[in-house]
Nucleic acid binder design. Structure first.
Length: 284
DNA sequence: AAACATCCCAACCGCGCACAA
DNA sequence: TTTGTGCGCGGTTGGGATGTT
């Protein structure tokens, strides 16, 4: 049996989110911060279950999400982390703060799994014994590890003070992470803006139910008003910083593992684990 | 141009964990 | 200790987009 679904109530909407729903959700979270998902539908009038709201926020609306193609570095990082951690997408996503676990999972399922199984096919044609296969895996992991080192040297923690600093200094928000997020919402809201523009021309103050200015919606929604730099330090962005700090910590641990020769034995242990995981992956 | 196949990703579902009462 | 609730995670699916015949 198990627990009944959380969203089996009548009148709960499913399917793609509309720009209006996004606006409602974002503006509510901007005011109250993320969390308390249960209360959001009741407080906002959204006909969505709490879970759906959380998912929409974490996978799409949250600031700092990078969308689009994965870079080679990201790809290598994912491959290696998957070998180390298995399908623990949330854990893997912790090392790629700009990507969501859902994105990484999708990318793995649609691109990397095929890619790797192809590679495996090629290599297994050449060698059939388990010993050789394990040696090959070990080699792959070492190569991936080197790739990870390269990736880390290129992609230092994207967060931290620099990130905050960027935001603080910005009259113009040059932060790529924010920009992409703003773009997400901008695109979503384009249609909505067009529709409301007519109204705004006749009555600016009513143009946007979540904004009291005529600035582009995303900036206003996230408190990124260039006239009030301190506004960038909203609870939202604090939340982001916190997540980023956690990611930094994870990065540090990884870097320790990568660079500290004194933990050679622990490295071996990790690689042993990854061997098992990786074998399971390919045997399925 | 139309029909069909494949890809891709946003969203859903069910389960497990943590925590409070 | 048990039970109920909320949240997060990983697996899966639906359907639009794109490619192929």
């Amino acid at each position: 049996m198990g627990r009944p679904p959380c969203c089996d109530k009548l009148g709960v909407k499913k399917g793609p989110w509309t720009p209006e729903e996004d606006i409602t959700l974002v503006s509510y979270i901007q005011e109250h911060g993320p969390g308390n998902w249960r209360t959001i539908p009741a407080n906002t009038g959204l006909k969505r279950c709490s879970k759906s709201c959380r998912l929409r926020w974490t996978n799409y609306l949250r600031p700092g999400i990078k969308r689009g193609n994965f870079t080679d570095q990201e790809e290598k990082l994912i491959i290696h982390l998957q070998a180390l951690l298995g399908n623990r997408w949330a854990a893997i996503a912790a090392y790629l703060p700009e990507r969501t676990d859902n994105d990484i999972k999708n990318y793995w399922n649609t691109h990397l799994r095929k890619k790797l199984s192809k590679t495996h096919e090629l290599s297994s044609n050449k060698s059939s014994s388990k010993g050789q296969w394990e040696r090959r895996l070990q080699t792959d992991i070492n190569m991936a590890k080197q790739a990870l080192i390269d990736a880390l040297s290129l992609e230092k923690p994207p967060i931290s003070d620099d990130h905050t600093h960027e935001l603080k200094n910005s009259g113009g928000y040059c932060s790529a992470t924010y920009a992409s997020s703003a773009e997400n919402i901008s695109k979503l809201l384009e249609g909505w803006m067009r529709n409301t523009k007519k109204h705004s021309e006749s009555n600016t103050s009513e143009a946007c139910s979540v904004s009291s200015t005529t600035k582009p919606l995303p900036e206003t929604l996230f408190g990124l008003d260039s006239e009030t730099p301190e506004a960038s330090e909203t609870s939202l962005l604090h939340g982001e910083s916190k997540a980023s700090m956690e990611a930094s910590t994870s990065f540090s641990m990884l870097e320790t593992w990568l660079f500290d020769e004194s933990v050679e034995q622990e490295q071996d242990d990790l690689l042993d684990v990854s061997l098992v995981d990786t074998c399971q992956l390919f045997s399925s």
